[in-house]
């Protein structure tokens, strides 16, 4: 069954239209990447899925449930775990508290998150605002996993991190994929994306303009859509 189905959504910020018809599907256990240059609507698409910006038209369904009328917390409860852009942890809670505050029962527990990110385990008692950028990113991913989502959405998970930390994050994403998590991924490091993705969706000016396998995303297409 299709886990996430986005069809023809148009989203506005006030009077200015950001999305002009985004098409996107994620199947169970699949890694789909959303690509495009800055300002093409990637984050807006994610915000629309999570109910943070309501699309004016179009349809978003998750495991058969229409999301268009649900508030953000209900959407999250259905099983969408968002790792927002910019590592948004709760700075006034400890690492452990950040993880358990929204935890829901399932295979992801404090222990399994610690196994995925051993660095977090060393810092369970620390406040989140004392973590480095990379650790905060790990925490944001861990927090999303602790809700035991059916779909993890990673928005710019490796942006602004040191190369060695990026490698850690990509290794964790690859591990999540092997464990069968469905992931919707937004990122700009093309080589890593193509290595991990099952399918690619490219946005341009708020519209889906290309969909296909990573192998088909040839250099001329990369040049055309991503300016690489």
């Amino acid at each position: 069954m299709t886990l996430l189905e986005v069809s023809g959504i148009e989203t506005f910020y006030g009077k200015s239209q950001a999305l002009f018809g985004v098409e996107l599907e994620v199947e169970e256990g699949e890694v789909v990447t959303l690509m495009g240059r800055n300002g093409m609507g990637k984050t807006t698409t994610i915000r629309s899925i999570c109910g943070l910006n309501r699309p004016r038209t179009g349809r978003i369904a998750f495991a058969g449930t229409d999301l268009s009328r649900l508030p953000p917390h209900r959407i999250a409860q259905l099983g969408i775990g968002l790792v927002p852009e910019g590592r948004r942890c709760f700075p006034n809670l400890t690492v452990r508290e950040n993880l358990i505050v929204s935890a829901r029962p399932g295979k992801w527990t404090l222990d399994s998150v610690e196994a995925l990110f051993p660095r977090l385990g060393e810092r369970f008692g620390q406040y989140a605002n004392t973590l480095s950028g990379g650790e905060q990113q790990m925490l944001a991913i861990g927090r999303a996993l602790m809700t035991n989502p059916r779909l993890v959405i990673l928005d710019e998970a490796t942006e602004g991190l040191a190369p060695v930390i990026r490698d850690d994050i990509w290794a964790a994403i690859a591990k999540l994929k092997r464990e069968g998590e469905a992931i919707l991924l937004v990122d700009k490091t093309i080589d890593e994306i193509l290595a991990v993705a099952d399918r690619c969706v490219v946005l341009e000016k708020g519209k889906t303009v290309w969909r296909g396998k990573p192998g088909e995303f040839a250099a001329d297409l990369q040049n055309r859509y991503l300016g690489l």
Binding site: H73, V101, S102
Partner: peptide
């Protein structure tokens, strides 16, 4: 956990809603 969520809501309610808790 209730207290943690309360303090998280003070920090950022949208973020709390995005992890499935209604502030």
């Amino acid at each position: 956990r209730f207290g943690m969520a309360l303090q998280a809501a003070r920090q950022n309610e949208v973020r709390l809603a995005a992890v499935g808790i209604r502030p």
